[in-house]
Amino acid sequence: MSETPAIRLSGLRKSFGSVEAVAGIDLEIADGEFFSMLGPSGSGKTTVLRMIAGFELPTAGTVSLSGRDVTRLPPFERDVNTVFQDYALFPHMSVLENVEYGLRVRKVPRRERRERALRALASVRLEGFETRRPSAMSGGQRQRVALARALVNRPRVLLLDEPLGALDAKLREQMQVELKEIQRDVGITFVFVTHDQAEALTMSDRVAVFDQGRINQVGTPEEVYERPASAFVASFVGTSNLLSGAAAKALIGRDGTFSVRPEKVHMGTSGVPGTVAEVIYAGAVTRYVVDLDAGARMVVVDRDRRELRGQSVCLSWQDEHVVEIKENADAA
């Protein structure tokens, strides 16, 4: 990357007492990127976000925003804004006052303030809600207010801490699309924390997969999904059939750890023999759990539901869909 990254984290660590929440993170996020931090709860992703925002001081390492070291700066001196998981709307202020707050603090003149706030509310499709109190709004609407309140300040970087976590599935999908559109429109860097792998894959330019305070893999959604760098990534992002030891030697022909995605496996009359142990119907697809005669268990996804429980089937896949996982020493 030739230009200065919007965010650069180097050697970032954070300990709470004896617990090491973040165990050494090096990361560069480019200007205008939609970047997701994906990981299970307790993997350190939110702590990293909070250190970028300035709510937590790192135990070691630095945070740079557009080339400027801000590691020791308080939140109000950083050119980033945050959308909080609980939205953190001020309950005693109207929607408009909430959105205007950042501008008021920065002493933006009244007329400009009003204009920008109204425009921000329009961009999240909340015209006509100006005088409402946050308590009189639905979760999805509050979420939009929180977004408008952050975006109205035109930060270089917008930090989003599981902002869709409290929404129901339908609204979530809708907001995913909207968020992505908004990010494209305003063109600023979005750093998006989520534990939902599907969400991260749909929305992001790049994804960092977190586990136990470290980053396992950084890459485009496709890279992370198609070529997982560790067994953890393979199983956390989507589902994977992990083969190792004797089974790997028997099925792949080599020693090592290999991943095959369930949708890449074909169930038919030729290939590796096994018995269907379980049929799980999930609407759009049906998952078949197959116990291979060679001693491994594999999941296969098929569009059609067939009553194959207890029956013998043969599984086959193409060599190009087998991903060898070379664990780096410290992630193992």
Partner: peptide
């Protein structure tokens, strides 16, 4: 009073005294 309200205020550029006057006291 959720801590996130205080953090949100700081995040939006307010110093401690401002957060106290504009957020904590009214609530």
């Amino acid at each position: 009073l959720p801590d996130s309200l205080l953090e949100a205020s700081a995040d939006l550029g307010a110093r401690g005294s401002r957060t106290f006057r504009a957020i904590v006291l009214p609530i």
